[in-house]
């Protein structure tokens, strides 16, 4: 780990000033990703700004929905009674990720800002456009079984590893941030970006901005939701493909449905055409298959991850079926309903 200086502000204003006062400064809270990256020399900050003493630790009523402070831990969100009753999809997705210890330390803001787990990004002996822009991408044509099948570029095929963000995407959450230019709201779908020709930029957050909260809109899907995560082992592994789905029904007819995919792109992957294809249709397997086909038409698999296309297709169909039936996937009983 490189040497760095350390500051511990107590207000958001101090924190924003501190992040702007050194080149290559980083905020740190849970540290579960950043400390790991520093041990691999992937991150080499000159300054760490410890934000754990900022007053961003509350879950609050906001515009009929809930605002989750950036420092609320993943475990606190997942087990909060209001989250469990009003946003069970979010609770389920968080519990599908990481381990008990990591969820106790990792924060909401840090989960949004975690980096990819691409092997080449983590290995500082290898070229990587995300870690060292312009050096190339060895994952393309290399070992890329876990990589993206949607929205890739010729500079980067990494995926965003979060489960929480996939649920937030389906829930149409927003991210409240602030910086020297003032506060602004970023829709979750615009918070993470596709790699394009700047894969070093994971998000649209400016370097001197800080996440204040993640806000959930006032919306009720009852039991019509699911977070279905498919991975190499049944717990404590990143998704190969995951699906977060929410649905509203009027009898057998779908009045609204939204779904996001994890493990397949540089950001939670939504497809507006597929979602609108569900509207007004009967909640049947044929309807779900048609929506899945719209999504996977855009798939561009790499040399080793062609299996993800069919896996994603089936996961979408199963996820939409679970949401329609009101039988969300359990995160402890791993049998897929």
């Amino acid at each position: 780990m490189n040497r760095f200086d350390y500051v511990r502000p107590t207000t958001v204003e101090e924190a924003v000033r501190a992040i702007g006062s050194a080149a290559n400064a980083r905020f740190i809270a849970g540290g579960t990703n950043l400390v790991d990256l520093m041990k691999y020399n992937v991150e080499r900050p000159e300054r760490l700004v410890d934000i754990t003493r900022l007053p961003l630790e509350a879950i609050e009523e906001r515009d009929g929905g809930l605002g989750i402070g950036a420092l609320v831990t993943n475990a606190t969100v997942a087990y909060d009674d209001r989250i469990k009753s009003r946003y069970p999809l979010l609770s389920s997705a968080i519990l599908a990720g990481a381990s008990g210890q990591l969820r106790n330390a990792a924060t909401t803001g840090g989960n949004l800002l975690q980096r990819t787990r691409c092997y080449y990004f983590y290995d500082d002996a290898m070229p990587c456009n995300k870690r060292d822009p312009g050096t190339g991408c060895q994952a393309i044509g290399g070992v890329n079984r876990i990589h993206a099948i949607f929205g890739t570029s010729d500079t980067c095929i990494a995926t965003h590893p979060s489960d929480m963000c996939v649920a937030l995407s389906a829930l149409n959450a927003t991210v409240r941030v602030t910086g020297p230019a003032g506060e602004r709201i970023i829709p979750l779908g615009e918070f993470h970006r596709l790699p394009g020709d700047e894969p070093q930029r994971d998000t649209t957050l400016a370097a001197d901005e800080i996440v204040l909260s993640v806000d959930l809109p006032d919306e009720d899907f009852g039991a019509h939701h699911t977070y279905l995560k498919l991975r190499d082992r049944l717990s404590y592994a990143f998704a190969l493909v995951s699906v977060a789905a929410v649905m509203k029904r009027d009898g057998d007819t779908i009045t609204e449905a939204r779904f996001a995919l994890g493990g397949v792109a540089h950001k939670p992957w939504r497809n507006a055409e597929a979602e609108s294809s569900l509207k007004g249709k009967p909640a049947t397997r044929e309807t779900f298959e048609a929506a899945a086909d719209i999504v996977i038409r855009q798939a561009q698999p790499q040399s080793e991850n062609g299996f993800k296309v069919e896996l994603a297709r089936r996961a979408i169909i199963r996820g939409l079926s679970q949401a329609a039936a009101g039988t969300p996937q359990s995160q402890s009983d791993k049998r897929i309903a």
Binding site: Y6, R8, I28, G31, T32, V35, D36, L48, D50, T52, S99, G100, Q101, L102, N104, A105
Partner: peptide
């Protein structure tokens, strides 16, 4: 943070001590 051998309780909560900076 992958194996859990370093787990300790901090303010009663289990965490991976290998991913926690002592100063924090």
């Amino acid at each position: 943070g992958q194996c859990g051998a370093c787990t300790v309780l901090v303010n009663g909560t289990r965490i991976n001590s290998c991913l926690a900076l002592a100063v924090m």
